[in-house]
């Protein structure tokens, strides 16, 4: 399904955007993907790179379940085409790291935010994006960032609490 060429941790090589077999840097690993460059990044990540923590929920940027980081910024993987991601760093829930990520995931676990959990990769990737740039978000800041990420279990009370908790723990 996919081939991993090597395990360089600094991989990010620009290349021809319409080449037949695009190489993507996902979680600091290069993936040669035998896919149409117009394929949404979501399906390349899930079906071809085999990283299934990023979820499909709507395919139309309406739910945010597929949120990944592109060069550190939260984006909807269902709207990014594979060719848009070439030469850029894609980070998924499986590869996100650092003290903000640890604080967010830790707060999510200590408050038991999850219910069905299907949207939570998107929630967490967005929350990490928020706290990375705004260490002390207000409720309004949280609404602005998180309103795009749907949770049908409506775990929103705890999502909000966990973001505040992570901010507190980050000092």
């Amino acid at each position: 399904m996919f081939r991993v060429k090597s395990f360089s941790f600094e991989y990010a090589m620009p290349q021809d955007k319409d080449s037949a077999m695009p190489t993507l840097s996902i979680n600091n690993r290069p993936f040669d993907l035998d896919v149409d460059p117009a394929m949404p990044l979501l399906w390349a990540i899930r079906d071809h790179a085999g990283l299934t923590g990023t979820k499909y929920g709507c395919g139309a940027a309406l739910c945010g379940a597929c949120t990944v980081h592109l060069d550190g910024e939260p984006v909807r993987a269902c709207q990014i085409q594979v060719r848009d991601a070439i030469g850029r760093k894609v980070t998924t829930i499986e590869g996100v790291e650092g003290k903000v990520a640890a604080a967010v995931q830790g707060a999510w676990q200590s408050l038991d935010v999850v219910q069905c959990g299907y949207c939570q990769s998107g929630q967490i990737m967005t929350a990490i994006g928020l706290l990375s740039q705004n260490p002390k978000p207000t409720d309004a800041d949280i609404n602005n960032a998180m309103d795009a990420i749907v949770c049908r279990c409506a775990t929103y009370v705890r999502i909000r609490a966990a973001i505040h908790e992570a901010a507190k723990n980050l000092g």
Binding site: A61, T67, E73, P74, Q79, A127, L130, N144, A145, D147
Partner: peptide
């Protein structure tokens, strides 16, 4: 767009 909800998170250079 706001922090972590940037326009380009969904709106790319061409219509989808």
């Amino acid at each position: 767009g706001a922090v972590a909800a940037r326009c380009y998170a969904c709106h790319r250079d061409e219509n989808n």
